[in-house]
């Protein structure tokens, strides 16, 4: 079970605002899904290595050679707010 405080903590980590009724609903929905997921807890997996990629490849490094950059207008084109050729945001310290 995931309670209200945990929902609020996780929402904060995920930077999601939740209304009061959304917090309640989320607690219920997540708990229900976690109940199903909890079944993997029954498996004996201690000696099993984790898999991230099924076909294991290594390296795939890129030579240290420049590629063209985006023109600044293009980089800034989709930004919600621009100033001084940069992306304008509320100050983190404010």
């Amino acid at each position: 079970m995931i309670d209200r405080d945990e929902v609020l903590h996780v929402a904060r980590l995920a930077r999601l605002q939740l209304d009061e009724d959304e917090v309640q609903a989320m607690a219920g929905e997540l708990s229900a899904v976690l109940d199903h997921i909890a079944r993997i807890g029954e498996l004996e997996l201690d000696d099993v290595p984790p898999t991230t990629h099924v076909v294991e490849v290594t390296g795939r490094l890129r030579p240290d050679e420049p590629r063209p950059c985006l023109p600044r207008e293009v980089a800034l084109e989709q930004a919600p707010a621009v100033q001084d050729d940069g992306f304008l945001v509320p100050s983190p310290q404010a």
Partner: peptide, 21 residues
């Protein structure tokens, strides 16, 4: 790099910064 935007760059009266990537 985050650069302080100064007085002209305030967002709704709050302090703002400009990001240079």
């Amino acid at each position: 790099k985050l650069i302080h935007a100064g007085a002209s760059g305030r967002i709704h009266g709050s302090d703002a910064s400009v990001v240079d990537f």
